[in-house]
Design a protein around this nucleic acid. Structure first.
Lengths: 316, 316
DNA sequence: CGATTTTGTGTAAGCACTTACACAAAAGTA
DNA sequence: TACTTTTGTGTAAGTGCTTACACAAAATCG
């Protein structure tokens, strides 16, 4: 379930559904406890008819927010169980008017007592949980009414696609540019080491195959930035090979790559992202801090001579 | 939908279900927008297999919180659509191991881009709505895990039933005690008026038939308190005929009756409860204030000579 | 080591709704 | 007045899960 914390609509939908099922089944149990031969789904219809005798099918559907088909089915069951009576409206032969039968009237006080107990419990529950679920749902519904999720996503997509900077995964053939961009900056400050060459010359073998990932940033179809996630022995990921072409700097490309990499690590089920850097690289360190990384107290062993700063970011 | 604000588990369950359906249908639309021939329900399974190739059916079910039956069905569809491949574990012939097909691998980057856009939208949505739905659900689940709704309701019921004071609806035959209790206090402070006699002698005709209600409080099977809701022309209710036997006073009976009456008014779909009283009756006025009633600025016409205080309570 | 229990998976049917379709009664229109 | 459209309701089938049942492979046990 962990990896679904991503808050996709599917995940949220699924969770709401399960919650809904929980309440439905609890409701059934509660009715049983009160010795009522009464289906939870009847409740809204029955209650509405009790309070507004002579109401029609369609009105009920409107009021309780179901479709008329649903109401039609529930009414059928209620009639079959002798709780509801249905008559045709003499003024309008299409309309069916509902009233409680005597048996229905007899059930009402019990239902009221039960409803009252349940209401109290629910109120206590929600107060206790300090979970203003009802209000949260209200707000969410309000927002969605103003603009639905689909068009919200469409807007986000448009923004992403209009952006001059496009992120994508490493594809076969990207190795030369991947190497070039990294070699460029490393050799500016340091000298290439053996560990560098292994990863830069054979990224698919040393980074992707063990379960890592490489993200590239493109501007006008030109790769101008790279960033890799290397799987670590403890299940975490190391953020490495972060490089942005000098000409493309100042466009937040490093930040975008970093964010995407962190999200990818989350997707891959990791709880932490680790990285190594050097105190000489002030702008890089500032970027890592902005991404949420914090200095690591106890240093780990590193294959890189230039690594004198270690940071990590804990996820969730 | 109004009258369902009562927060019964049915109402909440129903609402969660509708929300869930909304997200599911939006998700379907979003997939369509991205040109993906992909069912929303596949998402958790597909994504999990993408990140943990070689995972088995049961493990998937555990991880995503569905039943194995559900996973089995989804996997069947994914295989039929060429996105997933299934092999039998050579070590354990019962287990089916899942991997993405090439076609599945090809879909992955598109799915990733889409997921990312959706995630951003959802985050923005929830932030914007300031609706911490996810957290609210967490808390609620936590509370329910500690003690389920059913037993919570059982406890509330027990408390109610153990209480010496029992509330119930007016039944045929209650008229004499209803009249007696009211006559008792009225004649202590005032004199009975014509309007009193009508309602006290024929409560079913003047109170119940027009759509009102009468609640009685019993102690040891003895009716010791009364309270009525009288339907007003504007759709509101008047709280009236509130009487508690002198011997039974000091047990919060008036408060319990008042609360129950207010709740009943709410159930009946009213947005306000009105009442009339007299400034001489300090304890009664204090009770009404405790129940949430507020003095009415503009006086209404009243059939009662003794009415010199008018209050109302707005619901919701 | 055969018998029993457990585990992993699949299939069928159910649930509480929905959408899609059907059809007659009422309302609007020419 | 005959017509088309709209409205109110009912039925069938679909949805995305669930529970219930079935069955073979593996694990456990006397």
């Amino acid at each position: 379930m962990d990896f679904l914390q991503q808050l996709g609509p599917v995940a949220l939908g699924s969770r709401l559904r399960r919650m809904s099922e929980y309440f439905t089944s609890e409701a059934a149990g509660i009715y049983a406890d009160y010795g009522l031969d009464f289906q939870p789904r009847w409740y809204p219809v029955f209650y509405l008819v009790a309070h507004r005798p002579g109401i029609s099918s369609n009105e009920i559907a409107d009021q309780i927010g179901h479709t008329h088909a649903s109401v039609s089915q529930i009414v059928k069951e209620l009639v079959r169980n002798g709780l509801l009576a249905m008559t045709t409206d003499p003024q309008d032969q299409r309309r069916r008017l509902m009233t409680l039968t005597e048996q229905g009237q007899a059930v009402l006080p019990q239902l009221r007592a039960q409803t009252d107990d349940v209401r109290r419990s629910m109120q206590a529950l929600l107060t206790e949980a300090d979970a203003n679920l009802w209000q949260a749902l209200d707000r969410l519904e309000g927002q969605l009414q103003q603009r639905n999720l689909r068009s919200r996503v469409a807007r986000v997509r448009e923004l992403r696609e209009q952006s001059p900077v496009q992120l994508r995964d490493f594809r076969p053939g990207d190795q030369p540019i991947f190497r070039q961009l990294n070699e460029e900056w490393i050799s500016t400050y340091f000298t290439l080491e053996a560990a560098d060459l292994k990863a830069l010359d054979h990224p698919e073998e040393y980074i992707l195959a063990p379960g890592g990932g490489i993200l590239l940033a493109e501007v006008n179809g030109q790769v101008v930035g790279t960033c890799a996630l290397i799987k670590m022995a403890d299940g975490g990921y190391e953020l490495a090979k972060m490089a942005v072409a000098p000409a493309a700097q100042g466009q937040q490309i490093g930040y975008l790559l970093g964010q995407a990499a962190i999200q990818r690590a989350r997707d891959l089920g990791s709880r932490r992202v680790y990285l190594e850097s050097n105190s000489k690289l002030a702008p890089a360190l500032a970027l890592y801090r902005k991404l949420g990384f914090q200095d690591l107290a106890q240093p780990l062993a590193s294959p890189y001579a230039r690594a004198n700063v270690q940071m990590e970011l804990r996820l969730n």
